[in-house]
Design a binder for these strands. Structure first.
Lengths: 146, 146
DNA sequence: CTTCGTGCAAAAAATTTGCATCCGT
DNA sequence: ACGGATGCAAATTTTTTGCACGAAG
């Protein structure tokens, strides 16, 4: 479990200022830990208790959080969604396309492939590995005629 | 190697009409086999010999080709890029972020993980596994100060 | 007090839609 | 001839940028 305070600290250590907007964002992402949420969702949630926050700020701060390696970004349904990084070690996710719920997968296929045949022709800098589908809850809802 | 004619045939079999625009698109994608190209790139290329083709048509037909399982779509650099599906068997790609060149990876991590621990909580419908980086050619260009 | 962050307005980029017309089959 | 496909214009959606003001360290 990640706690907001730890993340505030990490942000500061990387030279970013801690503003109320950023606090709210981090707190919200903590609450939604285990879910990927869209920029707009995040905005809607925060606006309920901080009406003046602007969506531009959300965009800019998610970029900051990403640069600070505190969040992970994926592209689904024609938009970016963000989730808090789970401490340390590299891993991947199983993501529910309906509700955004995620489950961490402690397995990275890169290791399996690393020295594979033709890999000399490329220098790998990034990779994606995500599983998409439906969590049991959403799967049931879907069957009952969505 | 995929040949245009085979793909024309497959399109028709799935109930889509074969129009000159679609022919051009398929021919171009065949030429660029092994590369993922953007909608706009594809448009630019085709316009050289078919000036009147509209970018909306490109968008719409890429959707058609995707529904017909003839192309594969990825999201890089803030946009979708498309590549012809290589015959049969499921596989993944190594993609050059600079030039879009791809290499097929005959390995699917899904098998490694399939029956893994917590996977019962989700029904997997899709997955992504792509490696990104630079091909030797682009890597060299980059080192010589891009 | 200086630098970085914010809100706002406006632009940009990518993709989608409505509609009249056209063309494969 | 029919129904799907195209071109065009315009709208939508998502994200980015410029700039003056405000607040954190």
């Amino acid at each position: 479990m990640n706690y907001p305070q730890e993340i505030f600290q990490q942000l500061k250590e990387k030279g970013y200022k801690l503003t109320p907007q950023r606090e709210k964002m981090i707190e919200t992402l903590c609450k939604y830990q285990g879910h990927f949420i869209s920029v707009e969702q995040l905005w809607e949630i925060i606006r309920q208790t901080y009406q003046s926050i602007h969506i531009t700020t959300i965009y800019r701060n998610l970029e900051v959080l990403e640069k600070a390696s505190l969040v992970h970004k994926i592209y689904v349904d024609g938009m970016y969604k963000y989730g808090l990084k789970v401490e340390s070690s590299h891993h991947h996710h199983m993501i529910c396309k309906q509700c955004g719920k995620t489950k961490t997968i402690d397995f990275c296929p890169l290791q399996e492939i690393h020295m594979g045949s033709g890999m000399k022709e490329f220098t790998v800098t990034d990779h994606t590995f995500e599983l998409y589908g439906y969590c049991n809850q959403c799967k049931n809802l879907k069957q009952k005629g969505e």
